[in-house]
Computed example of a mutant assay.
Amino acid sequence: MTNSPAGMGSSTPVNVSKLGYVGFETPDVDRMVDYYTKILDFKLVERSETQAFLTTNFDHHSIVIEKGDVNPRSFVGYEIWEDISDAQRRLKEAGYDVERRTDIAPSTPDVLIVEEPSTGIPLHLYDAQSGSGIDGYTPIRPTKLGHVAAFVPDLKPLQDFYQGLLGFKWADTIGDFFVFLRCNSDHHAANFMASKVKRSLHHIAYEMRDVNHLQTMIDHLAKNGYQLDWGPGRHGPGHNLFTYHKDPDGNNIELFTQLDVIHDESKGYWEPRPWHNDFPQYPKTWEVDVMTINSWGPINPALMEH
């Protein structure tokens, strides 16, 4: 396991600044739009017969729903904090095929596309989105798309790619099979679980403001017939409070709050919290045990199978 950035020859990694959006393919676009708008309270920004753009915040979209087979991680978009042409040059210098397109979405007129190694998932790199038009606060809606977790055949190529090419930083690892990576002060924006048999999505996560916001959403889920598969609980890596339920296509959806953050990069440890076991709490490799998965106790074996 490589827990430090991999090299890109003489090139400097692209400066990814945040997770922007995720693409979902589904056989029933209407059903998924209803789930996101009526259950999770996302705003529908644009819609066609085969595609829908939805958001939680000021960006044009956080989720893109497209007509197709069930595929909950058909592409992932990351915002970069630099010039698109410069990023394109460095990606090519590093030996990666890069496509530049202007027709990806109405809000992102200039996008670089590079494939994630070993999975072939297209990654969209862009410098900004147009606005969503959201002009008010709602008591239910999540604050943002937080992170995406996926099954992959081998962790090392993915970790080397994200750290060496996209500038992510190592946040934590569980055993030798689950790695957490960050692109800003949040504990993780991407995490990967090694699996010889499973592919695609492990879960997608949306941030809630605080415990009261999370409780309000759980009550809203229950009122609309969505029951929890796991949680509430507290993870070890990231120390976030969590719940998991399934969307209409059976994808695992995490709602979380209290995720660890690094406010001072020069110190390199997570902002101290009373529930931390180490002081200071640095990134580390965690033992594979119940306290790591959920310090409150119960685990869901199905979500930990790999």
Rank of each mutant, 00 (worst) to 15 (best):
215 Q>Y: 04
231 G>C: 12
245 H>N: 10
213 H>P: 12
198 K>W: 09
242 F>K: 01
237 P>K: 04
229 D>P: 10
227 Q>N: 14
218 I>F: 10
206 Y>L: 08
238 G>S: 09
230 W>C: 03
227 Q>I: 07
247 D>G: 14
225 G>R: 02
214 L>M: 11
210 D>H: 14
204 I>H: 11
231 G>H: 05
211 V>K: 14
214 L>C: 02
233 G>W: 03
219 D>V: 03
211 V>M: 11
207 E>M: 15
199 R>S: 11
246 K>D: 00
198 K>I: 03
245 H>A: 11
199 R>Y: 08
244 Y>L: 07
237 P>E: 05
230 W>Q: 02
204 I>T: 13
215 Q>F: 03
245 H>K: 04
217 M>W: 00
197 V>M: 13
202 H>F: 07
235 H>N: 07
225 G>V: 09
242 F>V: 04
205 A>W: 02
229 D>Y: 09
239 H>T: 12
242 F>N: 03
236 G>W: 05
209 R>L: 14
225 G>N: 07
195 S>I: 03
233 G>T: 05
201 L>A: 13
200 S>T: 04
212 N>M: 11
212 N>S: 13
214 L>E: 00
199 R>V: 03
203 H>C: 12
245 H>V: 06
213 H>S: 04
228 L>C: 11
220 H>D: 06
221 L>Q: 00
220 H>C: 13
215 Q>G: 11
237 P>H: 07
244 Y>F: 15
228 L>I: 05
201 L>V: 07
243 T>P: 09
222 A>V: 09
225 G>C: 13
211 V>Y: 11
200 S>V: 03
229 D>V: 12
216 T>W: 05
244 Y>S: 01
195 S>W: 01
216 T>C: 11
216 T>G: 15
200 S>E: 06
209 R>Y: 09
212 N>H: 11
